[in-house]
Computed example of a mutant assay.
Amino acid sequence: MNDAVHRPKTPESACPARWWHAIADERIQCDLCPRDCKLHDGQRGACFVRQNVGGRMLLTTYGRSSGFCIDPIEKKPLNHFFPGSAILSFGTAGCNLACKFCQNWDISKSKDMDRLLDAATPEGIAAAAVAYGAHSVAFTYNDPVIFAEYAIDTALACRERGIRTVAVTAGYIHPQPAREFFAVMDGANVDLKAFTDDFYFKLCAGHLQPVLDILQYIHHATACWLEITTLLIPGRNDSDGEINALAKWVARELGPDVPLHFSAFHPDWKMDDVPATPRSTLTRARRIALDAGLHYVYTGNVHDSEGGTTFCPGCQAALIERDWYDIRHNDLPTDGRCPHCATRIAGYFARLGKPFGPRRVPVRLLRH
Rank of each mutant, 00 (worst) to 15 (best):
R7E: 15
K9Y: 10
K9S: 04
E12S: 13
C15D: 09
W19F: 14
I23R: 06
I28Q: 14
Q29L: 10
P34D: 12
R35P: 07
K38S: 15
K38W: 08
H40A: 15
D41K: 11
C47Q: 13
R50N: 09
Q51R: 15
N52P: 14
N52V: 13
M57Q: 14
T60S: 07
S65F: 01
N79H: 11
F82N: 05
S85H: 08
L88D: 01
F90P: 02
N96G: 10
N96A: 13
C102L: 08
W105T: 08
D106W: 12
K109R: 15
S110K: 12
L117K: 15
A120P: 03
A120R: 01
I125P: 01
A126M: 04
A134F: 07
V137H: 04
A138C: 06
Y141N: 07
Y141G: 03
P144Y: 03
V145T: 12
F147M: 06
F147W: 08
A151Y: 01
D153C: 00
T154H: 01
R159N: 01
G162P: 06
V166M: 07
A170H: 09
Q176R: 14
Q176P: 13
E180I: 06
F182W: 10
V184P: 08
A188M: 09
A205G: 11
A205R: 12
G206F: 08
L212M: 02
D213E: 08
L226E: 09
I233E: 03
R236M: 09
G241I: 02
E242W: 07
K248L: 13
G255C: 11
G255N: 12
H261S: 04
S263L: 02
P267V: 10
W269T: 09
V274T: 15
T283H: 12
A285K: 03
A292H: 01
Y298I: 08
T299F: 10
G300L: 00
T309R: 08
Q316Y: 08
I320E: 00
D323H: 11
D323E: 14
W324K: 02
Y325H: 06
I327W: 02
I327L: 05
R328D: 07
G336P: 02
A342S: 10
T343H: 05
I345S: 01
A346P: 05
G347E: 00
F349W: 05
A350K: 09
R351F: 14
V363M: 01
V363G: 01
L365T: 00
L366R: 12
